[in-house]
């Protein structure tokens, strides 16, 4: 089972094409985020910027950092780490928005 996984890992990561494709996608998303920043969506501008940054990070995590091919435990760990970061942000702003302005 483990050996099989390792085999899959090697087979997949040995392709150059996917990395060049992801690089291209990352550059396009960078262009998109700069363009979107020029248009005034009001409050949505920050949301759009963070959404694009999240998509870019997802590509880096899954493809460049090989998360797609790692054991499930890796994804569970990262999921937990991100969950607590997001919870902290939600609680922080639940507090701040209640009495600032």
């Amino acid at each position: 089972m483990e050996k099989n996984l390792e085999h899959r890992h090697e087979k997949h990561t040995a392709h150059y094409g996917i990395y060049i494709l992801v690089w291209f996608a990352l550059l396009i998303l960078t262009g998109l985020t700069v363009t979107v920043a020029g248009i005034n969506f009001g409050k949505l501008t920050v949301t759009a910027a963070l959404l694009i940054a999240s998509i870019k990070s997802y590509l880096v995590l899954t493809i460049f950092m090989h998360l797609r091919l790692e054991q499930k435990a890796f994804r569970v760990f990262i999921g937990i780490a991100l969950f607590f970061i997001i919870i902290s942000f939600v609680l922080l702003f639940a507090d701040y928005t209640s009495y600032v302005r």
Binding site: T30, T33, A49, S57, V60
Partner: peptide
């Protein structure tokens, strides 16, 4: 790289 992806915007 990921940290910069967030710092930039």
């Amino acid at each position: 790289d990921i940290i910069w992806i967030f710092l930039f915007p």
